[in-house]
Structures are given as C-alpha cells and as structure tokens.
C-alpha cells in the first residue's frame, strides 16, 4: 500500500467522521465544523488518488481542490452569518424542531466557563 493510498483512505475516514458529527451534534457551529471536516476529506481523496499514478503529477485535481477550498470558505461564512442571525432572532444556535435530548447536548459547555474564556480573549 503506497502512502498516497493511505492518504486517500484518511480522506474517506474524515468524510465519514464529519458526516457522523454533522448528524449527531445539535449546535450549528459544530455542524459547520463537521461540514468543513467532510470537505477536507473529499479534497484529500481527490488529490491523493491523483498522486497514486505517479508518471507526472496531475494539476487538474489540484486546481479543483483550490476551487473547492474557496467555495468552502464562502459557504462557511454564509452559514456563520445565518447562525448569528438565527441566534439573534430565536435565542438558540440550533435548528428549529431540535428534539430536547439533542438540545441537552448544548448544556455541557457551561455558559460562565465559555463566557469568561471569551472575555479573556478579547481583553
């Protein structure tokens, strides 16, 4: 097994891992992180498989991934802005109709804890 193949398999695992987190976590910020991890997995797979042939390097997947990275940051930025607006309007950064058991997942990040850390960062 070449190391390129290993990277391709890492990409596939990252995709699946991100998909799991996307479905499991209720907080939208986590879902956005999950989407980004999935994207990284796809990009890794796209390039690692190209490196596998190894006569000359194939720049086309590289260009595709750069395109993909730019698309990913655009989507992330829009998602974050939407999340903040939703939070402003509804008071919660979760999707509507989120079941209570999923909501409870939001609790562990204790408000005071995060808030204080955040203040510390801003100061």
């Amino acid at each position: 097994m070449s190391s390129d193949l290993f990277y391709a398999l890492t990409g596939a695992s990252l995709f699946t891992l991100g998909l799991y987190a996307l479905i499991k976590h209720a907080h939208i910020l986590r879902k956005i992180l999950a989407i980004n991890v999935m994207g990284s997995g796809v990009f890794l797979l796209l390039v690692a498989l190209a490196a596998g042939g190894q006569q000359a390097f194939d720049p086309v997947p590289h260009a595709m991934v750069i395109t993909g990275i730019v698309v990913a940051i655009s989507a992330t930025a829009l998602a974050l802005a939407l999340m903040l607006r939703l939070r402003e309007a509804s008071g919660l950064a979760v999707l509507p109709d989120t079941s209570p058991e999923e909501l409870s997942e939001q609790l562990p990040e204790a408000p005071s804890d995060v808030a204080s850390k955040n203040n510390g960062k801003n100061a």
């Binding site: 910020l29 999340m83 008071g91 960062k121």
Partner: peptide
C-alpha cells in the same frame, strides 16, 4: 484560507455568539 481565515471567521462568530448570550 482553510486554516487561517476560516479559523478567524469561526472565532469571530463564536465571540459574537457568546457576547449575545442574554
């Protein structure tokens, strides 16, 4: 982009999220 600016975006959004924690 992937690490730097996305990271800045995420941290910025988190700061706003926690600031409006009323």
């Amino acid at each position: 982009i992937g690490a730097g600016l996305t990271g800045a975006l995420l941290l910025g959004a988190l700061a706003k999220l926690e600031a409006g924690a009323e």
